[in-house]
């Protein structure tokens, strides 16, 4: 067993410096690396580029980094649940690159899997395709999209062990597995760090080889963005 465990978020983020490109898992506020974000706020790292499907809300998730003007650029598929985001985008402080959600996932996966680029039909004939190489396969047009290059990938899992093996819960999985091993250093934070040997190898979603550092996170808030319920009849 190769031990990837670090004691806390502070140690897990060692080497993170201004101007770096980061991947962050999560969909909305679901499955976001809350501890890593909190540590980034504390260490006041600046001018970062964030590859993340969304940009949090005003006072949670990546919104916390936006409030402190720590983000230079966002690469996302859907943003704007966030007033401060809108203000910074319109004032030109924040650069935003919007890309299709499946393309975002696949550019992460390509980086993880060692593909320099992939062809996708998503966005062909739209402004997303502008300036990009296109090619026809079997009568259909595709766009060439390159793999992301990132310094750190921050993911959140439900359970993990010191070997870096991860299991995700429900839809908190989302982009997290695709970002593992897609950056130079992958940092996984888990709700529960269990003893090595206690996870069933058949049930592991991400093998530890894709993870460089793992720690047990603290105080997960797991905020619900849109609480929808039905009435008992």
């Amino acid at each position: 067993m190769i031990n990837k465990q670090v004691p806390n978020a502070k140690k897990a983020l060692k080497g993170l410096t201004d101007g770096m490109t980061l991947m962050l898992g999560g969909f909305g506020l679901c499955g976001i690396p809350e501890n890593a974000i909190a540590e980034m706020v504390a260490m006041d790292v600046k001018k970062i580029t964030c590859i993340s499907n969304n940009a949090g809300v005003d006072n949670f998730g990546l919104g916390l980094l936006l409030q402190k003007h720590q983000i230079r650029k966002m690469v996302s598929s859907y943003v704007g649940e966030n007033d401060e985001f809108e203000r910074q985008m319109l004032s030109g402080e924040l650069e935003v690159e919007l890309i299709p959600q499946g393309t975002l996932a696949e550019r992460c996966r390509a980086a993880q899997a060692g593909f320099p680029a992939i062809y996708t039909p998503a966005g062909y004939g739209t402004e997303v395709a502008e300036g990009k190489e296109t090619r026809e396969f079997d009568g259909k047009m595709y766009i060439l999209e390159t793999a992301f290059k990132a310094d750190f990938s921050f993911v959140k899992a439900w359970k993990g062990d010191a070997a870096g093996n991860l299991i995700f819960k429900a839809t908190a999985r989302n982009f997290n597995p695709n970002m593992c091993g897609a950056a130079t250093i992958t940092v996984a934070e888990v709700e529960e760090l269990v003893p090595v040997g206690s996870l069933d190898p058949n049930q592991i979603h991400i093998p530890g080889i894709f993870v460089q550092r793992i720690f047990e996170g603290k105080g997960y808030e797991k905020r619900i963005e849109k609480r929808t319920v039905r009435q008992k009849i």
Partner: peptide, 25 residues
């Protein structure tokens, strides 16, 4: 409600028998 179980509109949901979860790719 389960914060870990939402739809693409970020609303809390449930699953039915035979459901499955998977990553974005």
């Amino acid at each position: 409600e389960d914060a870990d179980l939402i739809n693409a509109g970020k609303q809390t949901i449930t699953t039915l028998e035979g459901a499955s979860f998977f990553d974005s790719a």
